[in-house]
Amino acid sequence: MNDTVKSTTRAAAGAPSPRRRFLKDAAGVAGGAGLLALGAGIYAKQASALPATAIRPPGALAEADFLAACVRCGLCVRDCPYDTLKLAELGDGVATGTPYFLARDIPCEMCEDIPCVVACPSGALDRALTDIGEARMGLAVLIDQENCLNFLGLRCDVCYRVCPVIDKAITLERMHNPRSDRHAMLLPTVHSEHCTGCGKCEKSCVLPGESAIKVLPIKLAQGSRAEHYLRGWEEKDAAGESLIGEQLELPVRGLEDKAYGDTRVRPGEGPQAPAVPDYAPARPPGGGLDSGWKP
């Protein structure tokens, strides 16, 4: 009773009731805390873009899941025998405290026992990865074809030689060198089904500054497969025969005795052009080189 009287007098005097004041204070405090958390959340979202040169350790979950799982303890860093991995410091552009490596500095040596994955307590590095050859830390891309020595026609081959999956992840493809028109170029070519993204090629590229071959996140390095485009040759292999039936073979006039599709013609073979009388340019009167013409 006494209470009611007091609260009504207070209400009459224009002062808020204790409950209202409590709610108002709580709302203010909660709002402040919410703003702080919101700021952290927005910053985290904005800063979660990984620089293209920062490579996650082998077995790392997809980046979004990785950022939810990694507790930033650095145990993977400690168990990396080659000091490849490091924890991001504030200002590195990588989520603070998460592990990464720069292939041009120290690449992954692809330990067979994958100690970094074994050390991870948080699940950010997936222990389902037991064969380092199955790791997909990124994908090497020969990104600068203007400065790559092999593209210039030299035999550097260093990236090919150091590749731990040599002749599978990187092969040398022989091409005609159109500049000299008489030499071959052996072009280092990366195959995504074997490249682990260890970065040894990027590390060893002999160019003085930036490497011509770089390990990029797979998302950056690869286009999406065009699912609507059926690759006829694959379909044919899978089905055992062409899906559209055998193609109709029409004869080509003059090449009837050659295999279908073979259009190579040696001199004297094939349909002959109509005979043209020998052509000789008209000689100037008087002969000699000086035509005597004056403007």
């Binding site: 958390a37 910053y43 979202k45 930033r72 490091k86 410091e89 405290g97």
Partner: peptide, 27 residues
């Protein structure tokens, strides 16, 4: 909401300890 350890981007507690052991940067 963000599906990430958003607070750990700014958490001074873990940042200071980690900084002392692994290196600070701007922390």
């Amino acid at each position: 909401v963000t599906g990430s350890l958003a607070w750990e981007w700014v958490n001074p507690v873990s940042m200071l300890h980690r900084g002392l052991i692994f290196g600070f940067g701007l922390a």
